[in-house]
Design a protein around this nucleic acid. Structure first.
Length: 595
RNA sequence: GGCCCUAUAGUUCAAUGGAUAGAACGCGGGUUUCCUAAACCUGAAAUUUAGGUUCGAUUCCUAGUGGGGCUACCA
């Protein structure tokens, strides 16, 4: 529709003033609700060509369009805005086209698609997932689907930070205070079990620091010399040296954690195509650094530590290997990137990581380029804002976090009590009820998080919880469920199907409004991929659901006597349902058949 | 100190440089013999400040102020 008009306008300008107009001067947008029309041309930029006043320019173009394009039924000019009306029957034809397309809005990957690796989640194995990880996982999972829908080949990946000082802390604490207990002895999920030892370590460590400071140490010395920290460092060295007892303990505790993570990922509905482990990539990173050092890209200090000097790029010097030869975070990320490139030869690599690591990823990309890897230009840090609690930042060291498992359970519980209160779901089996409430609770959580611009920090208030009314996931799910209810009924009663004829229908304004939104969907998916923004999809779904609900409220579908019109409304409903389902799918939200 | 992000109704969020800044929650008033009222209709309520660019700025630029982050031999 938009392309048709663009062509017409270009023709009009050519015919009226003899100029081939550049496409970016044709500012075509949706007409705002309070004005008559469907699409609006902003003519200010064209006055340079016409040398006429905006109103006159608009009127001349409007006349041309009206007499040359059948689909244009009229126009009006307000200031510099040309509001163009499209005939309702043209919109009805659009609906037919939309209905005839399979996979509407999605572009299948071509023979040589753009390959994009998306890394998200990236947990540490010393503690369970929390609300911050939920935002990360939901964004990453949705981005993967959006990029896939836009025609890219997507590899969803995860880097598990399974080695390093943090897991050594949990290991030390378990050795000292665990009494040989295992998760199954306590009935706890493995990740929570291990996480509790991490918190315990930090608690005891703080006590030791306080003790040392009281005995006369400076705080800095105390942090360095506290026995627990010395033990954790020793543990890390033993691990890197391959000490058998240490590695066995490490393997055991990590396996507990993974069992726990799997449960959380499954509950959240996220998946990965390939999981990398830092313990398997950091050595490649170290070799890379040492080779690059020989090649003269890096510098070695007297104490043996290895650095890259990025001061020419207005950054600092950055440590790549410690003086004791052990790897840091950057070391393994370098290794992981190279391994991944060798595995997939990606065009783009998106890291879904919080904005606190903006500097890290600048350094990562630059360092790889310095090392001679040109593909590192395809590295992109998808930097999202923090999730904060009303009282401020979450602090996992102090155990002040919103736990992912707890939150998911609470959402489901709220959905369940709400459903019962509303008297929904009477007559469904226990497992059916359970599944629907799970879908709704998760839908509420996911939508709440994804509708926000990823760049921005967001506040999460656990006490006020998340709404189920208004601009929410359940609102969209409810709209979908109502549509399914209608189409099911149509099938059962033989009132009609989507394929039935409705060619002679002239849609009313509410119906047209819905078709216009449906018509926007493919472009919107492309834009969401270009902008890397699930929030665009979320807000679109809400708008479509709202518009459809108005139509649904004002007009009867199955009660309509006229057969053509009834078929038309069924088709409109069916297509709205399909697009809502697709949109929700792009967000990783399930669309319940009933609720 | 240096660098990055951010600022919109009481609150949570929208708005490719375009018209009278759009929703939701909350608050006020309505709608159910009718396909699901988790819905629909309706009222009050907002662009941090000062400059600049532009026919036109919530949007772009500069400066100030508030909030957050980074600047670790943590990850």
């Amino acid at each position: 529709m938009e392309n048709l008009l663009r062509m017409g306008i270009r023709e009009a300008v050519k015919s009226l003033w003899g100029v081939d107009v550049n496409d970016d001067l044709l500012q075509l947008q949706k007409t705002r609700k309070e004005f008559e029309g469907d699409l609006t041309l902003v003519v200010f930029p064209l006055t340079r060509i016409s040398h006429h006043a905006p109103e006159q320019t608009a009127a001349e173009i409007g006349e041309y369009l009206l007499s040359h394009i059948d689909a244009v039924s009229g126009f009006n000019v307000i200031k510099g805005f040309l509001n163009i009306s499209i005939t309702p029957s043209e919109w009805a034809k659009r609906l037919q086209v939309i209905a005839s397309v399979s996979g509407y809005g999605f572009i299948p990957a071509g023979p040589e698609p753009d390959t994009v690796v998306i890394e998200y989640s990236s947990p540490n194995t010393n503690k369970p997932l929390h609300l911050g990880h939920i935002r990360n996982n939901l964004l990453g999972f949705s981005l993967a689907r959006i990029n896939g829908a836009a025609g890219s080949k997507v590899i969803r990946t995860n880097i598990v930070n399974d080695r390093g000082i943090h897991i050594c802390k949990s290991m030390v604490a378990w050795q000292l205070f665990g009494n040989g207990q295992k998760p199954e002895d306590t009935g706890m999920k493995g990740d929570h079990f291990v996480g509790d030892f991490y918190v315990l370590f930090e608690k005891k460590y703080r006590e030791q620091i306080e003790g040392l400071v009281a005995a006369g140490s400076t705080p800095e010395e105390a942090r360095e010399n506290a026995p627990l920290m010395l033990e954790a460092r020793r543990m890390l060295l033993k691990w890197e040296a391959g000490d058998e007892e240490t590695v066995t303990l490490w393997n055991m505790m990590n396996s507990w954690v993974y069992a726990g993570f799997d449960v959380t990922y499954k509950a959240l509905g996220v998946e990965f195509d390939k999981i990398y482990y830092e313990s398997e990539t950091y050595k490649t990173g170290r070799e890379l650094v040492l080779r690059s050092l020989e090649e003269g890209h890096l510098l070695k200090r007297e104490d043996g530590s290895v650095w890259i000097d990025l001061t020419a790029d207005k950054l600092d010097q950055k440590l790549l290997l410690r003086s004791d030869g052990t790897a840091v975070y950057m070391t393994q990320d370098l290794g992981t990137a190279v391994i991944r490139y060798n595995d997939y030869h990606f065009d783009r690599h998106i890291y879904v990581v919080g904005n606190e690591q903006n500097y890290h990823f600048q350094v990562l990309a630059l360092t790889l380029q310095r090392m001679g890897y040109d593909w590192a230009k395809g590295l992109h840090h998808f930097s999202y804002g923090m999730v904060e609690l009303p009282e401020g930042k979450m602090k996992s060291r102090e155990g002040k976090v919103v736990d992912a498992d707890d939150l998911i359970a609470e959402m489901t519980a709220t959905a369940t009590s709400m459903s019962e209160e509303l008297g929904k779901l009477a007559g469904y089996s226990g497992s059916e009820k359970e599944n629907i409430c799970r879908q709704i609770g998760l839908g509420a959580l996911k939508y709440f998080i994804l509708k926000v611009d990823p760049k921005k920090n967001m506040t999460f208030n656990p006490a006020e919880s998340i709404d189920f009314n208004g601009n929410t996931g359940p609102f969209i799910q409810y709209t979908y469920a109502r549509i399914r209810s209608v189409t099911r009924k149509a099938d059962e009663t033989g009132a009609g199907t989507v394929n039935d004829n409705c060619n002679d229908v002239t849609p009313n304004p509410k119906e047209t409004a819905v078709i216009k939104l449906l018509n926007d969907f493919p472009g919107l998916v492309q834009e969401a991929a270009k902008e890397q923004s699930p929030a665009l999809i979320a807000n679109y779904c809400y708008e479509l659901a709202r518009e459809y609900n108005q139509f649904y409220h004002d007009f009867s579908i199955l009660g309509e006597e006229d057969r053509s019109l009834r078929n038309f409304r069924l088709k409109l409903s069916e297509m709205t349902g399909r697009v809502l389902e697709s949109g929700l799918w792009l967000l990783g939200i399930e669309a319940p058949e009933r609720m």
